[in-house]
Computed example of a mutant assay.
Amino acid sequence: MSAVANDGGAAGRTVPPPPPTSDSRTFGRGIQDLVEGFRTSELWLHLGWTDIKQRYKRSVLGPLWITIATGVTAVAMGILYGELFHQDIKVFLPYVLLGFIFWGFIETSVLDGSVVFSTNEGLIKQLPAPISVHVYRVVWRSLIIFAHNIVIYAIVFAVFPQPIDWSALLVIPAIALFAVNATWATIVFGILSTRFRDIGQLLTTAVRLVFFMTPIIWSAQTLDAVGSEGSSRMKLVELNPMFHYLEISRGPLLGQHVEFYHWGIVLGCTALGCAAALVVMRNYRARVAYWV
């Protein structure tokens, strides 16, 4: 309703109502975007699978190239570094292989997630859908690649059986945590990289560096065999969060006991990452369409 104001007895004039307050920059709208995006699962499931098919279009083996490439690299690295470090190949090869498989999930989520919005400019501007659709698309695509690669472990396990028991089921919550972390990483790095394109290049360099700093092609247990100096080096290794992510996922499949503090650190990192993702969604979600 409009209000009527009197100016010294003059004829009343119409005063326009105040403009409505926008709620685009609220945590509620950010959470709503995530919920609505997840509900449109048919869309991001289709887009993620289409991405895999397009990548290997007109290829005879198709997505099997994912498995072949990972398997050849992991086996070659496992044999080479096993000889260099004088490791038992029956133990070291599955260790390296699982490291490659789970690291591949992390690397794909971070690097693909950092460019997910900038590479889908047309779809974002033309398709009236929550931006979280593209986030779930990246996570789903990473899970598909992971499912292809885990087949290699089944083959290696048949050749070199590991002493696993019921605790191997802990890999299920570990993979769930990987998916949650891939979600917040895609939101944070994807949105920020859309605004500042240099972040994508920095992430590529950082991921390569962290790969060599993480016990993937080398074993952290070898540090315990060099006395007090090895103990101090082990403390440096534990400062790397990726070490704990690999421990909770690789350990159960190798029949190793995983200390609870590894889970605690991963859960803490997950909570911090989700909080950062909510802040980024609150402040910058509505600007993505203008930045791409």
Rank of each mutant, 00 (worst) to 15 (best):
F102I: 09
T108M: 12
V110N: 03
E107V: 04
L97N: 03
L93A: 01
L123W: 07
I131P: 00
Y136N: 04
L111C: 01
T119P: 03
L127D: 07
L93S: 01
V115Y: 10
S118W: 05
V138P: 03
P128L: 06
S118A: 09
K90A: 14
F85L: 13
V110M: 15
F105C: 03
V133H: 07
P94N: 11
Y95E: 09
L93Y: 01
P130E: 10
P128W: 03
K125V: 13
D112P: 02
G99W: 04
W103P: 03
I124V: 15
V91E: 08
G113C: 12
S114P: 10
H86K: 12
F105P: 00
W140G: 03
L93M: 04
P130I: 09
Y136G: 00
K125A: 15
Q126V: 12
V133S: 11
V115S: 14
F117C: 08
S132R: 06
S114A: 15
K90R: 14
G113F: 05
E121L: 14
E121W: 12
P128F: 02
A129P: 05
Q87Y: 00
G104F: 01
V133P: 04
L98P: 01
G99N: 03
E107I: 02
H86R: 10
R137T: 02
R141V: 12
V138E: 12
V91H: 08
T119A: 13
F105N: 00
K90D: 09
S142Y: 02
L97S: 05
D112C: 04
G113S: 12
